[in-house]
Design a protein around this nucleic acid. Structure first.
Lengths: 259, 259
DNA sequence: TGCATCAACTTGTCTAGACAAGTATAGTTC
DNA sequence: GAACTATACTTGTCTAGACAAGTTGATGCA
């Protein structure tokens, strides 16, 4: 029992598991799931106006004949989904607004291309130790004049340029960043290793490439691009800021929302 | 105790609650949270390579001296966050890939503009009962030749066109859709009322506007746009499909990721 | 009136044990 | 060797009860 790090061949198990999203598929539904679905249905039907007081855990226990832990789990998950608000000592309330929060997966470009069954290679166009200008310093979140690492890398899918990655890195967080071979490992992958716990803010917009980006991506400067800007921090300490430019038509972000 | 629908003034309670995100802030941390953070830290430190077998619940119970329910909650939440995979009958495994799933909120354009303190108005350019062409039918998910409702609305922020909303709606789900006054209520808001429980798939890309979109948004056809395509269904039944075109520079999607 | 106190109610969490269900392996039988 | 079986282990879930902590409203007192 001490072989905690033993790596089994679990591929088959995980594949089997993938098709098992709905447990108790054959009629049986777990009680906590029943409570959850019942409340979800009534919320959807408008039984409680936003902000209205909903039944307490004790009332639901009596109504469904299950234990409080079961009701509690149902309510906790509904709260996580943003459908209800709970206040200790007060009660449970229907959520104020129907906010729709979508889950969107941003993957390492290398893994993403490989997952499509295509080949990935990167060309490195700049690896430099710079002094931050005011603009760069503000975007990364360090003080102007600090040392920053700067890389400019183009990622290709099947030989076609797909992403121009213009990245600044805080030397404090990744002192050996400049010595990484970026044709072998992506900056994202390396930084995830060095500083694995981080928060990120990002924005997605359409725009035109800079002259250099256009040249590296094989575009005209009037060709539209999808531009993702991402800034990541670790407990408030800035790690990296990246501008990822993708030619329109070659790349799109996908996502899904499930209630 | 029977006044389940009584609406209390809970504004103050919810405001207080908002600042209470971290419970046990003063030193005390709930045991399940301790187990969670411990495993998170070791995962981040690379104690288990992706796919490696992690300690079983029983081992963690012995190690931390807590009950199995407590360990189970910690593991369940880690699974929800995508950090581990669990297979009944087999064990718990470190997740295969470090997917970074960002939470991205797509709000009703009306609410979004009002939240910025700006004025919103909509101009309606098309409200029509059509027969679905093959392309439209495929995008919406109905069979070609079906009746579909089609609206084309431009949303303005402070008088400037911000979004061209080209939408198809399944008449089965919203038979009265065409009689709605879209200068008063947005299609999103109306459809949320009619069919509140839905799943959505969306994609975000850069591209060029169609001739009509360019005209409605006051753009040249060579001006880049951010285009969001969204298709929503209710338990597999297609509700609506929308193409939301935003002029580059006037709109961006923002999001954040927290571990 | 104003203030302190207390009881009733709420949610938040933990426990120890139980049973169900899925998987893997060693052993047994054919 | 192949097929079956028993067993040990895993996760998934539920229960009944307990205590902590927060809120609310009534009560009593100055």
């Amino acid at each position: 029992m001490k072989t905690a790090t033993k790596v089994r061949s679990i591929a088959s198990a995980l594949v089997k598991n993938a098709g098992k999203r709905v447990r108790f598929a054959s009629g049986k539904v777990a009680p906590f799931e029943q409570v959850k679905q019942h409340l979800k249905g009534r919320l959807a039907a408008g039984d409680w106006t936003p902000g209205a007081l909903m039944p307490s855990e004790a009332e639901l226990v009596a109504q469904f004949g299950v234990s409080r832990m079961t009701v509690n789990r149902a309510l906790r998950e509904l709260q996580l989904e943003g459908l209800i608000d709970r206040v200790q000592g007060v009660g449970t309330f229907a959520a104020q607004l129907n906010r729709v929060s979508s889950s969107l997966t941003i993957r390492d470009i290398h893994e993403e291309i490989l997952a499509r069954g295509h080949t990935h290679h990167a060309t490195v166009h700049l690896v430099k130790d710079e002094v931050a200008t005011a603009t760069v310093a503000q975007r990364l979140g360090v003080i102007a004049g600090s040392r920053v690492f700067h890389t400019l890398i183009v990622h290709h899918e099947n030989g076609v340029p797909l992403q121009c990655e213009d990245r600044y890195v805080n030397p404090e967080c990744a002192p050996d960043y400049l010595s990484v071979d970026f044709t072998q490992v992506t900056p994202t992958h390396y930084l995830l290793d060095v500083a694995p716990l981080w928060e990120a803010h990002f924005s997605v917009e359409a725009g035109l490439p800079s002259a250099r980006e256009a040249k590296l991506l094989g575009l005209k400067q009037t060709d539209p691009c999808l531009i993702v800007s991402r800034r990541t921090t670790n407990r408030g300490v800035p790690i990296t800021q990246a501008r990822l430019t993708h030619p329109a038509g070659r790349y799109q972000i996908e996502g899904a929302y499930k209630p």
